[in-house]
Write a protein that binds this DNA or RNA. Structure first.
Lengths: 225, 225
DNA sequence: TCTTAAATGATAGCAATACTATTATTTTTG
DNA sequence: CAAAAATAATAGTATTGCTATCATTTAAGA
């Protein structure tokens, strides 16, 4: 029997996995092992065979948890969104005015990640690297529509929805809240990647986190006035 | 011997291919065939074997033009950037003030593509779909740094540079011109994709091209004031 | 026009990948 | 402690990504 472990509010849609990796020691080893390995060699070179070897199990066992490596990436990214949403609650609680809440939300979305001690088997910093480098591959696939139907992007959509609500609070007449937020989120991933590999496509100013400053400034300029 | 065909200013860096596909009839068939096939089945399912079949040639012959399918995608995307840069010259020629030139440039970057009769073997509309759905895969790879060194992203970087120059003309004190432009370009791809598959992440208002309106409005708000 | 080189086609083959299946062994749990 | 569930061990298959070989066509130079 499978127990549903609802880990302090960070909870991933069951449609994504075959067997909940939080429900067993091997499952957690698969998750932590895949974060290590994928961060190191990238999604394309990542295989279940290599994962099994590095996590001390077999290919067949990994397949009992995830249909394929694409679903596993989906799981990692969905976990990341769930984790962000969970933290969003704390970051915005009792903050007034709405404009300040918006600022803090955007900072949460785009800032470089710090380790969160609560989840022993998840290295959040490496997971953030994976999200930056691979998360677009999660929806840029011919199966988007099907995966959307099974709720694979629920967590992402809800996060964007929540922050769009704050945008509307700040300026109810602003026409493109979802577009603005999803552009900033995806954009921050690209910009972090560009800063490392294609500096000609970004602006890195010494001594500041340019991505965060740019994101907050852009959102506020677009929404207010 | 290979002739270099510099097709009305749309010219791709030679480091990307083994043999210039513009230099032979088979080469052009490979390009047009790959645009058709890749648009239909997506980059991941696309293989040289399938391409050869649909273009009436053999796998081995395709390999004489491109090292692998990744390089072929690189070529298609680089061609697209070169084509955009070529059109940018016309769109901005003799336009004053700089703010109007910026507006038109952004429109060119983010608008849905129309067919250009000049290039018989290239379907620009389908190519734009490929760029929207697959172009991030071109740099989100462990080989970015190497490919950057061989000039694979030259065309993209130069396009962003040119428009950043216009931004600086409009407002010399604006701190993040490259970030702004590359965010808007990549963002427009995402938003077009979201509009089709994940509408919850975007805002589609009937009777308008929301992506273009949002992009122009955002750039002007960020740059001016 | 003949000769030679270059480009293409036809075919084969190989290592790696993405799975599936089978059976043996261990672990869990009622 | 028995039965069921989970995992390990191993094997196998179709597809992919790529290389190699050699025959044939096409183009180019003398």
């Amino acid at each position: 029997m499978q127990k549903v472990v609802e880990h302090v509010g960070v909870y991933v849609n069951p449609g994504i996995y075959i067997k909940d990796p939080e429900s067993s020691e091997l499952g957690r080893r698969i998750i932590s092992g895949s974060i290590e390995l994928m961060e190191e060699i990238g999604f394309d070179a990542f295989t279940f065979r290599k994962l099994a070897a590095s996590a001390g199990t077999t290919e067949a066992s990994v397949y009992r948890y995830f249909e394929n490596k694409h679903k596993l990436l989906l799981y990692l990214v969905a976990w990341y969104w769930a984790w962000l949403e969970y933290r969003l609650v704390f970051v915005t609680a009792n903050v007034e005015p709405a404009k300040e809440r918006l600022k803090r939300s955007v900072e949460l979305l785009v800032q470089e990640t710090e380790q969160d001690g609560q989840f022993a088997h998840i290295n959040e910093i490496k997971l953030h690297h994976i999200v930056v480098a691979e998360s677009v591959k999660v929806y840029l696939t011919p199966d988007v529509d099907h995966e959307n139907r099974i709720g694979a992007f629920q967590r992402y959509k809800r996060l964007v929805e929540r922050i769009s609500d704050i945008v509307r609070e700040v300026n109810p007449r602003y026409k493109y809240p979802h577009m603005l937020i999803s552009t900033i989120v995806e954009g921050s991933h690209h910009q972090r990647f560009f800063a490392r590999h294609l500096p000609g496509l970004t602006d890195k100013i010494k001594g500041e986190d340019s991505v965060t400053l740019f994101s907050v400034e852009s959102v506020l300029k677009c929404v207010c006035q």
